[in-house]
């Protein structure tokens, strides 16, 4: 559906997107995740034909965003970050204007507007369609932006930070709406909040510092970031050094760190691919140690995300310094 190949974007001297490639399949919800300034918005602006790429190509259904720009734009609904609107216009007036730009015939415009207003909670419970856009609250502006995007029922929706600035109830409603849209629509939305992307998306693309950090389904990513397993064990019954040495002697264990917690020795064990928990238990049994905890700690997606965010900030600090 959408093919991004070796996409690179320079803003004069600043490299915003650095050789990114990915593919988005039809009907999927794709979360574009990354810390602020990672290059998310820039990538989305290139996909939606607003900015040209410095190098690399983007195609949508085989249409190139540069040479067949108008055809691509017809198939995309794009909601920019912060939803810029013409403040002096009224909601319905604005949607009518946008419907005209979107090639919706004059006769079908009122019905299309009614449909999207209802879907984006603009006509009920409270009728906002006659309000001026400048008077609307952040949440309502966001809804108008989304209503506009849905007007011409495009196969591809590109939403840049659709939940930023919304309150928790609105965030949940927006998330549900995005979920509902999958199936007939391919949705790409960006966010810097992991939980949001993890809950809503079929696929996650993580970018940081302009580079692709990871891509896959949430489950795949979780598995990948978990890495070699880490075992936590708490034992008692011998000197801490002896316990640590005993465990370290087991097969497949690469490193052990021990600490004291009220007479219990807590071990932080780095293991290889094999799960050594059974061996640790057997060891405790033969040595007659007490065992009160033995568990496998999996790395969370959050740890991974925090880590790449941290790495990016270190890089930018170094570049700035």
């Amino acid at each position: 559906m959408i093919d991004v190949k070796h996409l690179t974007k320079w803003y004069s001297q600043v490299l915003a997107v650095d050789n990114i490639s990915f593919r988005v399949e039809k009907g999927r919800i794709v979360g574009f995740l990354g810390p602020n300034g990672a290059g998310k918005s820039t990538t989305l602006k290139i996909i939606t034909c607003f900015l040209p790429a410095s190098s690399g190509t983007v195609t949508l259904n085989g249409l190139d965003v540069l040479s067949e720009s108008l055809a691509v734009r017809r198939q995309i609904g794009y909601m920019p970050e912060n939803v810029p609107l013409y403040e002096e216009m009224r909601v319905r007036e604005y949607l009518t204007f946008r419907a005209a730009l979107r090639d919706i015939p004059a006769k079908r415009r009122p019905a299309a507007i009614d449909r999207v207003c209802e879907r984006c909670w603009l006509s009920s419970p409270e009728d906002m369609t006659r309000r001026r856009l400048g008077e609307l609250s952040r949440g309502y502006k966001q809804r108008v932006g989304l209503a506009e995007v849905l007007l011409h029922n495009p196969p591809v929706l590109v939403l840049d930070e659709p939940t930023i600035g919304l309150d928790p109830a609105q965030i949940r409603a927006m998330r549900e709406l995005i979920r509902e849209l999958s199936g007939d629509h391919t949705v790409i939305f960006s966010s810097h909040i992991l939980a949001e992307v993890e809950q809503t998306c079929d696929d996650i693309i993580i970018i940081a510092g302009g580079r692709l950090a990871a891509a896959g389904t949430p489950a795949e990513l979780r598995q990948r970031v978990a890495g070699p397993s880490r075992i936590v064990a708490e034992l008692k019954g011998a000197a801490p050094e002896d316990i640590a040495k005993g465990v370290e002697g087991l097969a497949g264990i690469s490193a052990v760190e021990s600490s004291q917690h009220n007479h219990w020795t807590r071990l932080d064990i780095q293991a290889g691919d094999d799960d050594p928990r059974k061996d640790i238990f057997q060891l405790a049994k033969t040595q007659n140690w007490d065992l009160r905890e033995l568990r496998r700690a999996t790395g969370s997606l959050e740890d991974f995300f925090v880590q790449i965010t941290y790495e990016q900030s270190m890089r930018t600090d170094r570049a700035a310094g």
């Binding site: 034909c49 607003f50 108008l70 794009y78 920019p80 810029p84 609107l85 730009l101 979107r102």
Partner: peptide, 14 residues
């Protein structure tokens, strides 16, 4: 300035 150029130029208009 307001950024509406983004919505305008990503609509199918020349």
């Amino acid at each position: 300035h307001v950024g509406t150029i983004e919505t305008l130029m990503t609509a199918p208009v020349t």
